[in-house]
């Protein structure tokens, strides 16, 4: 059970990366999972081949992902977002193919094994909480506002001085970094990665999670990401029916709540405060 939760949380980094990109710029990435494999492979290789300590190999993985996001973002983010979705799809497939091809470096289809185990449950939980906090700050900051503006109307955003291209690039690189961080954690938790793990189906799953939770709600992305990640595991007892139930659940939500489970709703700390105060005053009254 413990490892199911860890896997769900590691996947959450992918969901969060996808959320950042899709909620803020309206772009869909069908190659987001390849950033996770880049993070896992690069950090794993740095640790294995050169014996670098974990923080440095971690940093290497993040930088590699940021660089590859720049590489595909630079030429494609000036185009319409549909082309961006196609290119990221191609990129994801290309990364998997490259990992398979360079057998002498990456281990090919056999995968990369014996990555030093540096991750535990606590690190994953702390990381995810910090990441959610950072994303929340980003969404609430001026960057978040600018992103929603450019998602709504690029011409009007440019007219008030927003550099649309640069802002989109920034968000895409950030989303790649967050996703690859999950990859680094994955590699050093499982100590093994293979190319097939982060195919385009994984990327698509994340996009679905984000839409199920509500594309305008960070809370939605987190909750939906977590539930949908562990749902197939929880449904194991109905074996053959689990994919059916899982798909049905998603279809029902898309049909009856197209804005997602949470719409634009966000849980905030002040809300907890209010609940707490209400409870407190009620208790006092009773006494």
């Amino acid at each position: 059970m413990n490892s199911i939760i860890v896997f769900a949380l590691i996947n959450m980094f992918g969901v969060l990366g996808t959320f950042l990109l899709t909620a803020l710029t309206g772009h869909l990435s069908f190659g987001q999972a390849s950033f996770m494999s880049i993070g896992a492979y690069v950090s794993g290789l740095l640790a294995l081949k050169w014996g670098l300590p974990f923080p440095i190999s971690l940093l290497g993985g993040l930088i590699a992902a940021a660089m590859s996001a720049l590489l595909i973002g630079l030429p494609t983010l000036k185009l319409h977002k549909y082309f961006f979705a196609l290119i990221t799809f191609g990129f994801g497939t290309a990364v998997a193919a490259l990992l398979n091809h360079f057998t002498n470096i990456t281990g090919g289809a056999m995968g990369l094994s014996n990555i030093p185990c540096k991750t535990n449950f606590l690190l994953v939980v702390i990381s995810i909480i910090i990441t959610i906090g950072l994303i929340r700050n980003f969404v609430k900051s001026n960057y978040g506002r600018m992103c929603i503006a450019l998602r709504n109307d690029e011409i009007a955003s440019e007219a008030i001085g927003i550099n649309v291209y640069k802002t989109k690039l920034l968000v895409f690189v950030l989303s790649a970094i967050i996703t690859s961080y999950g990859g680094v954690l994955y590699g050093s938790f499982v100590t093994y990665v293979e190319p097939g793990m982060f195919g385009w189906t994984k990327s698509t799953e994340w996009v679905i999670y984000v839409f199920v939770g509500g594309v305008n709600s960070l809370t939605g992305a987190v909750v939906a990401g977590f539930i949908l990640n562990i749902l197939p595991e929880l449904l194991r007892f109905v074996s053959n029916w689990r994919i059916f139930i899982y798909s049905l659940f998603i279809l029902i939500i898309f049909n009856f709540r197209p804005e997602g489970l949470f719409g634009e709703y966000e849980i905030s700390f002040s809300m907890f405060n209010n609940v707490y105060k209400n409870l407190f005053s009620k208790l006092n009254h009773r006494n």
Partner: peptide, 20 residues
């Protein structure tokens, strides 16, 4: 061409966000 995803006050704020 207002930003329909932002509230009225955010629509105004966003105009200075890139100069912040």
């Amino acid at each position: 061409r207002l930003f329909k995803g932002l509230s009225c006050i955010e629509n105004i704020k966003v105009a200075r966000d890139c100069r912040i």
